[in-house]
Design a protein around this nucleic acid. Structure first.
Length: 879
DNA sequence: CGTCAAACTTAGGAAATATACG
DNA sequence: CGTATATTTCCTAAGTTTGACG
């Protein structure tokens, strides 16, 4: 099949403004590649019919679901347009080839995918409709069934059963909070036409210039198979591992078979093991260093050299040069000091009173503590939400003494204002501390980190990610969370399970306490765990991102994505073929996979509405989350997505799809109503199982990683101009990064000070322009002067003036670039994709190729996390 | 299969720091 | 230098994926 290009477009997401209240943020995502193909097809049909989800039934969730209101939180974000700017990032061209696709397999054509997209964005005006459904609003639907269960339970544990699915009903809306979110935004749809769009396939286009047009991306280089990671190769030299064939990247090796452990590693391990006991000196551990972070710069030579010279830092252990670990065994030796507990509660001074019904009332210590949690967030928005208040009050009463419980029966009669004032004052005091005091505290903290922040794992001293146990407080979930306001209890040593080597020095529980258990499970990476009382889930103390355990996994993640790169054409061809399948489950699976691939949607596990906010992902989309428009803004077969995804971030996007997909969606929606699952014959387990069959290690999220990294690589190629200054190149990088963030729908609320800081910047620009004007004038004057005098002194001045002018111009340009970047980034968060989806080797290679200092792209923490990539990638790296 | 739990990754906002500003 | 602003780090909620169980 070929697909041809199609177009697809992404619509821009809407973005448009939503009335704030309503929805949360929304932004506009983009789509990725692929395009559609024209074909028409009719598909057959088959089965359609009703679906019932059967099984579990649940599926029918309650209709009422909607309700979400966006996040309950406070702020909804919304955004608008922005997106527009970018048009389609992704996939750009590359695609064109559509035809190629077919083939199965992959050759690696680099571009696999993507096709066109483009989309234009929309409208300026925007506003599209969205509204429709609004999530927020209640409305809609029926409620039906409902059952609601009461949730209560205290949090403890989840209960079970009952909830089950059938009808769960989402709570009814009524209640509280819900306030209606403003009703949805109703936005009107915009009209078509609008704007731009580009048309071109792909490209992102960021507003202005660029755009390109070309298809771009070419990447031809493909490697042919060889894919040996370059990195590896390079490294290879130094390392000895020759033994194994090294061609394969470690990752690859590990991945596939487990491989034998090679000798090197074995011995290494052995070495470490013993080393540990005496401290590692052997390995590099970073010893404490005086300065602590900053100073170091590490790098260090690989060998352990003893560089005791000190000052420099120890070295950084290049774990990526070691042989693979035994599969399933996460460590051979693990020793640590245990987690740090939250500081004990400090009772309020007697001068701070709690008033009940206007009268002072002395509370017992625990009651006071919990009251304080509420009291210190008095000015926060959520204390006005019914669900929050209700959950809080319910849990608060549970910690009260019988007497208190008898008296305190109405939250509205409680006056926590003095507590609020007291805590605010304390925080002010903290801020006002002298430098010395702050230094002292800082020192204390560093000492704590030094003692508890590291562990010895297989002879290496590695940083722990979260060694502090979460302090008690009020649970604040994201979005319209049914449990917001519940009391998150204090974790005691008796709740904590310690995981460490049997032959290590066990951590000591705080005086007078004991651990819940000390176990020695080396098949997991956590050092300590406890179960929290809100959702009943387990929380873990794990290593920091710079550790080998985390780094190696991260590296493998990208290797898996690269592997997908090689066979994505085959997979795409297959799912397109399956759109015509006679079996409904196959068609649903194929359409869902198309969404995951093209739009980078998350898998979408089912979730219990009593336990969490109503958010969805691909497999859990419901009928009301999609609207079909046979024609929208000049495009045919447009699917409008409008739902709340992870963290209750709104995903609103108009996407032109191929006719077959459109027809299938109509089929899937037939005879269903809001609240019913769109893909009633599919769930993430089924999907992942299928993916696993197509490629080892393939799961739904690999598509996000793959499409994100691939988009970055393509966009960098498309947007980088060799003649640009470093600043301009960085802008290009940020735009490429932005295209990915839009694809993945990574939003952020507009910083509170955004407007102000934008106008400050503009003022600076204006001033700079003024300076330039002045400088130019002076230059001209000097020049005239020089014509007369022709003396050396004037010549010198002239020269200097000229230099000054140039300097100013350059500064101006930099400022303007900065302004552009800032504006385009207003409501888009680049950090998430940079940290979790973009293969760092792509960025490193780009930096090397264009001579952009990597520090401009990655800060210290990021460089530490991606040390493996910095070390192994050269400018020829190709994802 | 469907469920449940475990283990780990991904995510945005808040708090803490660093840096720029005046 | 003190303050305003920008950037980084912290924090922990919310996802994904897998395996055990019945």
């Amino acid at each position: 099949m070929d697909l041809q290009s199609g177009d697809s477009g992404i619509g821009s997401p809407d973005s448009q403004k939503v009335p704030k209240s309503a929805e949360g943020k929304s932004k506009k995502p983009v789509e990725n590649h692929l395009n559609g193909t024209p074909n028409n097809v009719s598909h057959k049909h088959s089965g359609h019919k009703h679906h019932h989800k059967s099984s579990s039934g649940d599926k029918h969730k309650d209709p009422n679901r909607h309700k979400h209101d966006k996040h309950g939180g406070d702020k909804p974000r919304e955004h608008s347009s922005s997106a527009e700017k970018i048009k389609d990032p992704n996939r750009s061209s590359g695609e064109k080839h559509s035809s190629s696709k077919h083939k199965e397999h992959s050759s690696k054509p680099k571009d696999p995918n993507k096709p066109s997209k483009d989309h234009s964005s929309k409208p300026k005006d925007g506003h599209h409709s969205a509204d429709k459904h609004k999530h927020g609003s209640e409305g809609k639907h029926k409620s039906s069934g409902d059952k609601h269960k009461e949730r209560h339970k205290d949090g403890s544990a989840k209960h079970s059963s009952d909830k089950h699915r059938p009808d769960k009903v989402r709570k009814e809306g009524g209640s509280s909070s819900s306030k209606p979110k403003s009703s949805g935004e109703v936005k009107v749809k915009t009209e078509p036409g609008v704007s731009e769009k580009g048309s071109s396939p792909t490209k992102l286009v960021i507003k202005k210039e660029k755009d390109g047009s070309q298809p771009a991306v070419k990447k031809e280089p493909q490697d042919s198979d060889d894919d040996v990671p370059l990195a590896m190769r390079a490294q290879g030299e130094k390392r000895a591992h020759e033994s194994d064939s090294d061609d394969e990247p470690l990752a690859a090796r590990a991945e596939k078979k487990k491989i034998k452990k090679e000798k090197p590693s074995a011995e290494a391990v052995a070495r470490k093991r013993k080393a540990e006991s005496d401290d590692d000196d052997d390995k590099p551990i970073a010893k404490p260093k005086p300065k602590k972070k900053k100073g170091k710069e590490e790098k260090a030579t690989p060998e352990k050299g003893k560089k005791k010279a000190k000052k420099e830092e120890p070295e950084v252990w290049k774990w990526w040069e070691e042989g693979p670990r035994e599969e399933g065994v996460k460590w051979k030796f693990l020793e640590h000091k245990g987690p740090v507990f939250a500081p004990a509660y400090e009772p309020l001074p007697d001068s701070v009173e709690f008033l009940y019904d206007g009268k002072p009332m002395k509370l017992s210590e625990e009651t006071e503590e919990v009251a304080g949690f509420f009291g210190r967030m008095l000015d926060h928005d959520y204390v006005t939400k019914d669900a929050f208040r209700k959950n809080f009050f319910h849990d608060w009463r549970k910690v009260m003494t019988p007497e208190e419980r008898k008296v305190i029966t109405n939250l509205d009669k409680c006056d926590f204002r003095q507590m609020d004032v007291y805590y605010k004052q304390k925080s002010e005091e903290r801020k006002a501390m002298t430098k010395e005091q702050k230094q002292e505290i800082k020192k204390q903290n560093e000492a704590t980190v030094e003692e508890y922040g590291f562990c010895n794992i297989d002879g290496h001293k590695q940083r722990i990610g979260n060694f502090k146990i979460e302090p008690p407080g009020l649970f604040r979930g994201r979005g319209d969370h049914p449990k917001m306001g519940m009391h998150k209890k204090r974790v005691r040593p008796e709740d904590v399970i310690i995981n460490c080597s049997k032959d290590s020095v066990y951590p000591k529980a705080p005086p007078g306490h004991k651990w819940k258990e000390v176990r020695h499970d080396n098949s997991v990476t956590w050092l300590a765990s406890w179960s929290e009382n809100i959702q009943g889930s387990i929380k873990y103390v794990m290593l920091n991102a710079t550790s080998r355990l985390k780094g190696e996994k991260d590296w493998m993640k990208y290797e898996t994505a690269r592997k997908l790169h090689k066979c994505v054409d085959r997979i795409r061809a297959q799912y397109r073929e399956e759109w015509k399948s006679k079996e409904m489950r196959i068609r649903q699976r194929a359409v869902a996979l198309y969404f995951i691939d093209k739009l980078a949607l998350r898998a979408g596990n089912e979730k219990d509405s009593d336990e969490a906010a109503d958010t969805v992902g691909c497999c859990s989309l419901r009928v009301e989350h999609i609207n079909l428009h046979r024609e929208h803004e000049g495009k045919e077969f447009v699917v409008e997505f409008d739902f709340l995804g992870k963290d209750s971030i709104r995903y609103h996007n108009f996407v032109a799809v191929e006719k077959k997909v459109f027809k299938n969606l109509q089929l899937f929606k037939e005879n269903k109503s809001d609240g019913d699952d769109l893909f009633d014959r599919l769930n993430t387990t089924i999907l992942n199982k299928h993916l696993q069959d197509m490629m080892e290690g393939l799961t739904a999220k690999v598509f996000r990683t793959y499409n994100a990294s691939n988009t970055l690589q393509q966009q960098l190629q498309l947007l980088t101009n060799s003649e640009d200054s470093v600043a301009a190149k960085i802008l290009s990088y940020n735009r490429a990064n932005r295209a990915v963030a839009i694809l993945c729908n990574h939003q952020r609320s507009v910083p509170k000070t955004f407007e102000k800081s934008m106008s400050n910047l503009q003022a600076k620009i204006d001033k700079k322009k003024e300076d330039i004007k002045k400088s130019r004038k002076e230059y001209k004057g000097l020049k005239a002067d020089y014509k007369h005098k022709r003396d050396a002194k004037t010549a010198g001045m002239l020269e200097r003036k000229k230099k000054q002018m140039e300097r100013l111009e350059e500064q101006l340009m930099k400022l303007e670039v900065q302004a552009t970047d800032k504006e385009e980034n207003k409501e888009i968060a680049l950090g998430t994709s940079k940290l979790n989806y973009l293969d760092p080797r792509i960025s490193v290679a780009w930096c090397k190729k264009w001579e952009v200092p990597v520090e401009k792209i990655y800060n210290k923490t990021q460089r530490d996390k991606f040390a493996w990539a910095l070390d192994m990638a050269d400018e020829t790296f190709e994802f």
